[in-house]
Simulated assay, not measured.
Amino acid sequence: MDEPKTINPILKQVLELGPPLLFFVIYLRIRDDVFTWGGVEYTGFIVATLIFVPILLIAMGILWILTGKLSRMQIFTAFMVIFFGGLTAWFNDERFFKMKTTIVYAFFAAILSIGLIRGQSYLAYVMSEMIPMKQEGWMLLTRRLTVFFICLAVANEIVWRTMSTDAWVKIETFGFPILMFLFLWSQIVALERYTEIDEPK
């Protein structure tokens, strides 16, 4: 069995967080511009979206080469970005890319809910190697994360339907990730009593 490849944690963070940050920077630079291709006008947001897709794929390709694997969440997110980025360009409608976030969060909530109905934590299946925790703790975290994903999906719908594109881009790039980090951090602290410590052999 092949040994897992190690990667510098800073480089890993750059490859994972770099593409969204580049999208944000590119959008700020061209948001007021209009581009004409084939007689069709495209806003800066749509062009930034089209640029973001290959940037994300390149970053994921480098991450795969360096680590030898990609998580299911990364693969699914990349598929959704490509699919909805394509729809955004094809129909020349930025709403498709904005709806992508809602669908991703709703999908994660649905998958976790299916596991809960079956009395299982699919979250543990994905993350148990990173966070050793008792089954009771995984079930609690899965239920809370399911509700959190639903809240994020609803929040995204409210944001893109009622706020400006500028506001959505900022919240998508910084707001939702920060909320996710704070939520997971708070849950790890709250569920600390369920963590399992390997006894020395």
Rank of each mutant, 00 (worst) to 15 (best):
M127N: 13
T146C: 15
V126L: 06
Y122R: 01
T142H: 06
G119E: 00
Q135K: 09
G115S: 13
V159K: 14
V126E: 09
E129P: 06
F148H: 05
V147M: 06
L152F: 06
L145N: 13
L152M: 04
C151Y: 12
G115Y: 06
L140V: 15
M127V: 06
E129G: 03
I158M: 14
C151H: 08
L152H: 10
T142C: 08
T146L: 05
Y125I: 11
Y125S: 09
L145H: 14
V126C: 05
Q120D: 03
Y122H: 02
V154H: 11
I131M: 13
Q135P: 05
M127F: 15
I158H: 09
I111K: 00
Q135D: 10
Y122G: 01
F149Q: 08
A124W: 00
L145K: 11
R144A: 08
F149A: 03
I117F: 15
M130R: 13
E129V: 14
Q135T: 05
L145S: 15
I150C: 10
F148T: 07
E157K: 12
I150K: 03
F149P: 15
V147S: 07
I150L: 10
G115L: 05
Y122W: 02
W160A: 14
W138I: 03
T142G: 05
F148I: 06
M139D: 01
E129K: 02
S128Q: 03
L141H: 10
V147L: 05
G115E: 06
V159F: 09
I117Q: 10
F148Y: 06
M133G: 11
Y125P: 05
E136V: 12
M133T: 07
I114H: 12
Y122M: 03
A153P: 00
C151G: 12
I131V: 11
M127R: 11
Y125M: 09
S113T: 02
T142M: 05
I114Y: 13
G119H: 07
I114M: 15
V154I: 14
M133N: 06
L112W: 01
A124N: 03
I131N: 03
V159R: 14
I114F: 13
E157P: 02
S121E: 00
F148C: 02
I131Y: 08
V126I: 13
W160S: 10
